[in-house]
């Protein structure tokens, strides 16, 4: 596998970065960096760390870091995940108020501990902390329940003062969305599987409306909706497909059950990521009250179920 870190990757311009990822020779990992400057979205960091933990350190080739921002990678604990020496010495900073370093979460209890620690780390007002805590919990729990990855989830987050945004990245190297959804549905490709996974009421665990007692099939729809209401980016990458929710245009907020009806971009021919990666931005300037988001969401969710039920109604046979 080869991965190159360019000078700046954020969700808006993540497509070219994903195109350069080379997934072949999966027992080896080569990482190269931009020589001058790197500004990396936590989604990218989580991806590299997720690849790092499943690769033997002796099979990891990491180019010597020259960029000024190399300390950032050390502070985010990337080299701990790669289990190689960075050669960088630095004074550890108190992380409070700025970032959540790369963290591996392999079980439910670890997730609960992580969630209780994460909000103080980001030092946010309740209005902002609430959706962030919610998003992280639901996304990581999705990994634990559906990815079947023995390495669990790798998560990181960073607060960006200039844009007043919290950016979050979560990656796993599990079965991916297509295999997960394919247990109950038959998506024709990775993009169709992502579309189904984002549609409320659809879960890989059952075809039954309303889900099972443990899975409602609404988790990803909730998260996409939080991003949509706040007019933030949301990216999901699995297999060869990527779906990107783009920022809303105009002030009118409409939530859609079908993610393809939202303002978005999509790709279905990217280098294959074995597993799932999610990136999300939360602009603190536009964050709506969480209870308002939930109110909007309720209507859309019920409409979606009604429509799906109606589509299955038997029609009278008139002769």
């Amino acid at each position: 596998m080869k991965i190159h870190i360019p000078n700046a990757v954020w969700l808006g311009n993540i497509d070219p970065f994903l195109k350069t990822f080379i997934p072949t020779n999966s027992d080896k990992l080569k990482i190269t960096f931009n020589k001058k400057w790197m500004s990396i979205h936590p989604m990218v960091l989580s991806m590299i760390a997720a690849l790092g933990i499943k690769t033997r350190p002796s099979k990891i080739e990491c180019e010597k870091l020259e960029a000024k921002s190399k300390h950032y990678l050390k502070r985010m604990r990337l080299f701990d995940f790669l289990r190689i020496s960075s050669g960088i010495t630095m004074k550890e900073h108190e992380p409070s108020g700025r970032f959540v370093p790369l963290t591996q979460i392999k079980d439910s209890a670890a997730l609960t501990r992580f969630i209780s620690e994460v909000t103080p780390l980001l030092h946010l007002e309740p209005k902002h902390a609430e959706p962030i805590r919610y998003i992280m919990s639901e996304l990581i729990r999705n990994v634990l329940e559906h990815s079947k990855s023995k390495y669990g989830a790798v998560v990181s987050a960073q607060y960006y003062k200039k844009s007043n945004t919290v950016r979050i990245g979560i990656a796993d190297t599990g079965i991916g969305i297509w295999k997960s959804i394919n247990q109950s549905y038959s998506p024709k490709n990775d993009l169709e599987a992502i579309r189904l996974a984002l549609t409320p009421g659809i879960t890989g665990t059952t075809r039954r409306e309303g889900g099972t007692e443990q899975n409602a099939g609404a988790g990803l729809f909730f998260i996409k909706s939080i991003a949509s209401v706040n007019s933030d980016f949301f990216v999901i990458y699995s297999g060869k497909a990527m779906y990107k929710l783009l920022k809303r245009r105009g002030k009118k907020i409409t939530l859609h059950a079908d993610p393809f009806e939202d303002r978005h971009s999509k790709k279905n021919n990217l280098p294959a990521w074995e597993g799932t990666v999610v990136g999300i931005d939360l602009s603190l300037d536009t964050t709506q009250e969480f209870s308002l988001i939930l109110k909007l969401l309720n209507g859309t969710l019920n409409e979606a179920i009604k429509e799906r039920k109606k589509a299955r109604y038997k029609k009278p046979q008139f002769i």
Binding site: G210, A216, N298, N302, I305
Partner: peptide, 18 residues
């Protein structure tokens, strides 16, 4: 209010689903 909203969503969702 947040918890009330979440409970209402789940209750409505389950009733719509049945």
């Amino acid at each position: 209010n947040t918890v009330k909203s979440i409970i209402s969503i789940v209750v409505d969702y389950m009733q719509e689903s049945d």
